[in-house]
Nucleic acid binder design. Structure first.
Length: 203
DNA sequence: ACATTTAGACTTTTTACTTCA
DNA sequence: TCTGAAGTAAAAAGTCTAAAT
């Protein structure tokens, strides 16, 4: 609960508000409430416009302002108070709905981006395997450099492991969603560290 | 005529504050 | 002076239902 903004009503103020309650307050689930409910009238457009305008500048009314607004609009202060309570509740639920939509869109975007990157990765793996094959054929055995042997030994199993892990992984869950930051911060264009570091990121 | 939605009014619960022993 | 229980009021949360769509 939020802090009181300003003021504590005097006992007289509190009593006066109590006195403005309808004479026969409806009990919950009471069947004998038709008389009270018959008095339920929608506010006029002008009243709503004025209330909205006040609400736009302040979502909570201090008692003095409440009395002033009530007088101006020909409503009971209690009606104004209730209208503000309901308006705050509606604002809150709208906000929750908006926040939910935003998060859902973000999630959907990231999911589709992840899928396309996954496809791209698969293409790169195929290309790498082809290239490795070509390199193995062109090397006549004696001229195999130490580097290429190490590279092949290091990359090939990792590619396969990665592909296998992915096949098993199933749904794209929250953990993957969270780990995407790690991917996003990886500098793909940095070739100075060699391709292995980049490729190993995936495995 | 009926179903659904909206909005005004209510009750209950929670919270912040005051008073007093 | 400090402290905790009791009392109080306002707001939030939840609900009901007349009126509008």
């Amino acid at each position: 609960m939020e802090l009181r903004e300003d003021h504590h009503p005097t006992p007289n103020e509190a009593i006066s508000e109590q006195c403005q309650k309808p004479q026969t307050p409806r009990k919950k689930n009471s069947n004998n409430n038709s008389k009270m409910m018959n008095n339920k009238k929608r506010f006029t457009d002008d009243q709503i416009r004025s209330l909205e305008s006040v609400f736009e500048s302040e979502t909570r009314l201090e008692p003095r302002k409440k009395l002033q607004v009530a007088k101006e609009l020909g409503l009971q202060p209690r009606q104004v108070a209730i209208w503000f309570q309901n308006r705050r509740a509606r604002l809150k639920s709208k906000q929750i709905e908006k926040d939910f939509m935003k998060l859902r869109d973000k999630y959907d975007n990231l999911t589709s981006r992840f899928e396309s990157l996954k496809n791209e990765k698969q293409c790169l793996i195929s290309q790498m395997e082809k290239l490795s094959g070509i390199m193995a054929e062109t090397d006549d055995g004696n001229k195999v450099s130490k580097v290429s042997v190490e590279a092949e030994a290091e990359t090939k199993p990792n590619f396969r492991q990665a592909a296998a892990m992915e096949d098993d992984s199933g749904l794209f869950g929250l953990e993957e969603f969270m780990n995407m930051d790690e991917f996003e911060s990886a500098d793909v264009s940095d070739h100075s560290c060699g391709r292995l570091q980049w490729l190993n990121f995936w495995t």
